[in-house]
Design a protein around this nucleic acid. Sequence first.
DNA 1: TAGATTGTTAATCGATTAACAATC
DNA 2: TAGATTGTTAATCGATTAACAATC
Lengths: 206, 206
Amino acid sequence: MRSRISRAVIPRLSIYYRTLLLHKSSEVVSSGELSDLTGCTPAQIRKDLAYFGQFGTPGRGYIVSDLKKKILEILGIDKNWNVALVGVGNLGTALLSYKGFKEQGFNITAVFDNDLRKIGKRLEGITIQDINGLRRTVKNKEIQMAIVAVPAEEAQKIVTTLIKAKLRAILNFAPIRPQVPKSAELINIDLSIELEKLTHFLRQKV
Amino acid sequence: MRSRISRAVIPRLSIYYRTLLLHKSSEVVSSGELSDLTGCTPAQIRKDLAYFGQFGTPGRGYIVSDLKKKILEILGIDKNWNVALVGVGNLGTALLSYKGFKEQGFNITAVFDNDLRKIGKRLEGITIQDINGLRRTVKNKEIQMAIVAVPAEEAQKIVTTLIKAKLRAILNFAPIRPQVPKSAELINIDLSIELEKLTHFLRQKV
DNA sequence: TAGATTGTTAATCGATTAACAATC
DNA sequence: TAGATTGTTAATCGATTAACAATC
């Protein structure tokens, strides 16, 4: 019986994966080498990987190509994903013009806003739609994820709408923590909180 | 002797603070009420606040105005902060045009890039400078924080430069984890990692 | 075989939750 | 006073680290 995977493991797999990209697929890499490159301890790396099976070789280490393939599958980044963006204010527009998503296999294929002056306009080659069209578009375009970049006041309502449209993976930039059912995964990126960690640090030092 | 403050406390203070903004300063609020509004447990809220002293009233709760003031001080957001932005590619430009920072008291007062075609141009009213001018500008403009939005390959070099210029608080968007001395605080916001948490979740469900 | 490194169990560490005496 | 809620200590939970037999 497989023990429950610690929440902290998945983000570390992302880190391991990027490090593996620096290696030739034919190479073998040990937990010690990965430790040097990632800053995680060798024990932690072995334990993290062991959650998903035994694919190292005692005395040698891990075959880079095997490990890459395995992590790719675990993370679900062996395919592209279609993403809906809700809210094209400052931050939303910014995220839409950010090319990093597409490079990583995340395609923003639909954009929504509730501002009548914006609806119908094109941005980065995509026509801004009314949120009412969400359900149909999600189905037609096979969208699986959503990025929320609306003001705090609207975020809960939008998230509820997304859930109703059967979206189960949401990246939220609004500075609140919307409620979602357990069947969905919501990740909050709150720039204010991050900045306030820094100001707290600076204040403390004085 | 004050016990060491758990790392997880500070971001929760940010959350409590925002909830307090919804209350009149003259009101009194209990850990139970804050719990309903934040999703944190009452015990956790009381424990978090108790790290910084006793400012609740048994049988009543916390006076909103006092608590606001106290958290404002702890977080260091009772003043404005000057911020340098390094890298005006896609994401950097996006962040520069994002108005949320200024609203929270974070003023981006200097912008740097290493692209000769960009240096000297103006963006959002700020002239893009060569990174060589960093040290002088940091001093002249009393900049205390930096946002890093350069490609992964350049991030470590830039962070080292920032540290040399006596900056001690850095928000990094490059998808690597640069090394910094213990005297500095570096926070990484890695959009790929966050997205991969979501794709892992979706993959797992199938 | 000798040396190296995995996979796993036990020990440690740190953070959260529960419980309750003290207090308004 | 009776009811409510804090501040704090002890118990629990979960994640990380250390240690080492098994294995190449």
